[in-house]
Nucleic acid binder design. Structure first.
Lengths: 156, 156
DNA sequence: GGTGAAAGGAGTCATCC
DNA sequence: GGATGACTCCTTTCACC
């Protein structure tokens, strides 16, 4: 399935990435199109996995997830990092991101927990049981100034 | 305004963080409540900034944002990092995250660009013009295995 | 791909509990 | 806080272009 996007698609993406709960009727009005045509485009964007999901961004503090950390993880396989290690890390709900990175460290993992005690518990219990992990280097976030996942959408 | 959340609120958050486009009527059915009561709770969660926004997660590849990098930035102010530097970094649309971190580096920044050439352009043009930046250390992401912002919501 | 009509469903609000 | 009912508007499908 090809994923060629025209400017109307890009406009839809721009509107929805900033307000996923916009009504289809409002989308149609913004684009000066019939609601049915817009609905079909949105469905196709979902099918083509251009739109991956719709999320409500929740304040981590409000649900008591006060600690954010980035952990650099060296894994046994060296440069050709283990898929198994990555999958085991990804399976943890506290782990929001797992990136395979260039350089001497193998993975960069973003983790959110209640507090430093629960981060320690996670590292002692869950992390230490994943085979192939050689070492970890943890960076604690003191304050988050910006956090969003909106992409720069370049029109054609 | 207090932000005490009961289990119904937490259920709403859990449902909406995985599907921000769920209809209010469907939410009400899941919770066995009247639609009007659920609507009022959702509005309060928005007012109280427990729900920060609703996002459509877009595939970065689909909109040609193929490069992801994390940049560690040391700023002049040392441990009491400059708010100005953080704000200048946050103002860049390619910058998705700005975290003030513990340790010798001052900020950790998550950046998405089209390719390595546009990352270099960003660093040469935008970054180098921000006063107070002493040095940068860039980590390029080769592959992203997991990327989500869903939080672990602990029921009471 | 897009339009427009039509039916069923959802959003919203005043009112009552 | 939550439920009900009523009105309006939206969603979704389908025939047609």
């Amino acid at each position: 399935m090809d994923i060629t996007l025209d400017n109307i698609d890009l406009q839809i993406l721009e509107l929805m990435q900033n307000n996923a709960r916009i009504s289809n009727a409002d989308l149609a009005r913004e684009l000066n199109m019939a609601a049915s045509a817009v609905l079909e485009r949105v469905k196709k964007l979902e099918q083509k996995k251009v739109i991956l999901r719709y999320n409500a961004a929740i304040s981590p503090q409000a649900v008591n997830q006060k600690l954010l950390a980035f952990i650099f993880i060296k894994s046994q396989e060296g440069f050709t990092c283990s898929t198994n290690t990555a999958d085991a890390l990804s399976a943890l709900p506290e782990v929001q991101e797992v990136h395979h990175i260039a350089g001497e460290d193998c993975f960069l993992v973003k983790v959110r927990t209640e507090d430093s005690a629960s981060l320690m518990a996670l590292m002692r219990n869950s992390l230490k049981q994943i085979p192939g992990i050689l070492s970890t280097k943890t960076t604690i976030v003191l304050e988050t100034v910006k956090e969003q996942q909106q992409l720069v959408i370049l029109k054609k």
